[in-house]
Design a binder for these strands. Structure first.
Length: 286
DNA sequence: ATGGCTGTTATCCG
DNA sequence: CCGGATAACAGCCA
């Protein structure tokens, strides 16, 4: 569920369920998922620690824990969901799902990190945090920043949007969506994107992410189960309104369907081994 | 059922 | 350094 909006919604859901809770037990079922921390170190460090904070940085989750009587009293735990990671709190007796790299026992509850593809991570190692560009929903993310950062970059703008050092948190879906709204061809070399288009791009990125967070916030997400609303809200539909998320995505996964703006056919291309969707008419190359 | 697709990103090449 | 390809892994869909 990994782009910025999904992580933001998760963090908001998790915060009230974790803050103040003490970790009683630690089980690492999949050591690779906590690398480079080793299971013994994780267990020693987390036992009897209490969650005191949770923040999002790009697509990363930064948990803060406190251990009284030890120094430093407060320390971070870094999480990333990869492609299929989920995190949730359930009653302690909840049956353990199939792919759970880490289980943290709380009092009467458990915190589960489930991750079928094991691309995600939960680690004590801060070196796992990459260099980050500005947060797209904060003031530092401006058209001017894009202009400066892209001035000498020949890489296609779609590919560059996935670069977390340019701006933190955009993934494959919202990259296509933002470019569609800004009417910029995904193939445009970054340095060739006009200043006016960069202004539209900045605005489109903010809009797309904010709308997604807003939408995700309205969903009764069931993080402890499976199904359309289990936290993967890209394609889920709201039970009541009938306004599904699919309708909110204007180009992503819509190859060969009519463009919602002009009616011509949406195309799928592959850039840097990832699918890109766009409307050749609304997002012309020239 | 086999093969091709998938939300991420580290790492290894040229 | 830059950019492209691949690997890490499992599930789902046609």
């Amino acid at each position: 569920m990994p782009e910025l909006p999904e992580v933001e919604v998760l963090v908001r859901q998790l915060r009230p369920r974790l803050i103040g809770k003490q970790i009683q037990s630690i089980e690492v079922l999949r050591p690779r998922s906590i690398r480079p921390t080793d299971p013994d170190t994780l267990a020693r460090t987390l036992r009897r620690a209490t969650f005191v904070g949770l923040e999002r940085r790009g697509k990363f989750l930064i948990f803060t824990l406190r251990r009284p009587g030890r120094r430093p009293s407060t320390f971070p735990l870094v999480g990333h969901l990869g492609m299929t990671g989920r995190m949730y709190v359930t009653p302690a007796k909840f049956p353990l799902p199939k792919h759970v790299p880490v289980r943290l026992g709380l009092r009467g509850e458990q915190f589960l990190f489930e991750d079928p593809r094991y691309f995600g991570r939960l680690t004590l190692d801060l070196g796992s945090l990459p260099e980050f560009g500005p947060e797209p929903l904060e003031a530092a993310f401006t058209a001017h920043h894009l202009k400066t950062a892209l001035a000498r970059c020949s890489q296609a703008i779609k590919v560059k949007l996935l670069d977390q050092t340019l701006v933190a948190g955009i993934g494959n879906i919202y990259a296509s969506e933002a470019l569609f709204r800004a009417r910029i061809s995904p193939r445009t070399p970054s340095r060739r994107v006009r200043p006016a288009a960069l202004v539209r791009l900045r605005d489109s990125v903010v809009e797309v992410l904010e709308e997604a967070i807003l939408f995700g916030s309205t969903l009764p997400l069931n993080f402890s189960g499976s199904g359309a609303t289990d936290g993967l809200f890209y394609f889920g539909t709201t039970a009541d309104s009938g306004s599904g998320y699919e309708e909110r995505l204007r180009v992503y996964d819509r190859a060969n369907q009519p463009c919602v703006r002009c009616g011509r056919t949406i195309r799928r291309i592959v850039q840097a081994a990832r699918s890109t969707y766009y409307c050749p008419t609304c997002q012309p190359s020239g």
